[in-house]
């Protein structure tokens, strides 16, 4: 827990980086949502029926909007896919610097020249890990789905709330599986950062050696960092609904937007927090190039 506290202290120390990383995410998403806004506004602005959206997330409006223009749906899905790919590439570049800060612990003050240099140096290596992890995630997703469906055989007979709880349990199992894989990815990225010159295979081995004995603890700490975000998310959803339902005007929509962005900002913070935690742990186990300088005693 002490390590988590320290990691949180580091997160606060690099709040500028936190904000900037959030902004990269928000601006990438905005670039792709903007065309959608312009298109939908032309249909919704003069319609009385669209006002239903001001109180609830009334799906009937979306049905009217996209039902007759079903061709727009794949276009917007492609927009989302493009945004995801672009953001993924940007993040592989930034990962070099972020993991450098996390594993080295050199954050006060942040040496931005080192940060950008690390971004460029390890770009290919992070890209390679991402490519590998996409395959791993896909395999785990398929295996996970088969597993939860086997678990849920009894759940197939449930109705109402019981069915909802079973669906939630299935989602939780899938989340645990995917999160564990994600912590493995973090370990390998930390290995590349600590020992940049070694082969990819060697980095995988180093990452695995760190990951295997600590798998439960790492996943457990991930969920600990996730809990405050989850609480924020739930609170935001409740407040957002209340705000829009109560105000229903531009102010309400703006407040809801701000609440959503607070949630998005906290999600960025949650992952950074965890990275500072796992980075510190990794440095203790595999110091690599971050081994503290030995003081020679002149005895």
């Amino acid at each position: 827990m002490n390590d988590l506290r320290k990691a949180f202290g580091k997160l606060i120390a690099v709040r500028g980086l936190w904000l900037n990383l959030y902004l990269v995410k928000a601006l990438t998403a905005t670039a792709f949502i903007l065309p959608l806004y312009l298109v939908t506004d032309s249909y919704l602005s003069s319609s009385l029926y669209s006002r239903r959206l001001l109180g609830d997330w009334d799906i009937s409006v979306l049905i009217e909007l996209f039902g007759g223009r079903i061709d727009l749906v794949p276009v917007f899905l492609l927009f989302g896919l493009a945004a995801a790919i672009i953001f993924l590439l940007i993040m592989q570049f930034l990962n070099g610097g972020i993991y450098y800060l996390a594993v080295s612990g050199k954050i006060s003050p942040v040496q931005w020249s080192d940060f950008w240099s690390e971004c460029g140096t390890n770009f290919k290596a992070h890209l390679k890990i991402t490519a590998m992890m996409i395959v791993v995630y896909l395999v785990l997703l398929i295996a996970g789905l088969i597993f939860v469906n086997m678990v849920g055989m009894a759940g197939g007979k449930l109705t109402g709330k019981s069915a909802m709880y079973m669906a939630g349990a299935k989602a939780l199992i899938l989340m645990v599986i995917m999160t564990t894989a994600s912590t493995f990815s973090d370990a390998v990225r930390a290995a590349i950062t600590a020992r940049p010159g070694v082969s990819f295979r060697e980095s995988l081995r180093t990452g695995s050696d760190f990951f295997r004995p600590r798998v439960l603890r790492l996943a457990g700490f991930y969920f600990l960092t996730y809990l405050p975000f989850l609480a924020t998310w739930i609170l935001v959803e409740i407040l957002a609904l209340w705000t829009v339902g109560f105000l229903g005007n531009v102010v309400g929509i703006f407040l809801e937007f701000i609440l959503f962005q607070i949630c998005s900002f906290s999600r960025t913070g949650q992952k950074l927090w965890y990275l500072f935690f796992i980075g510190g742990r990794f440095r203790e186990a595999v110091p690599g190039r971050f081994l503290p300088q030995q003081a020679e005693l002149g005895i």
């Binding site: 998403a29 949502i33 903007l34 939908t40 506004d41 919704l44 959206l53 979306l62 998005s264 999600r267």
Partner: peptide, 18 residues
């Protein structure tokens, strides 16, 4: 209505990106 829809979809896309 379009602003609210865009705001919600923005949050959804950000969550996907995360």
């Amino acid at each position: 209505p379009a602003m609210r829809l865009a705001s919600g979809l923005l949050f959804l896309l950000e969550s996907v990106l995360s």
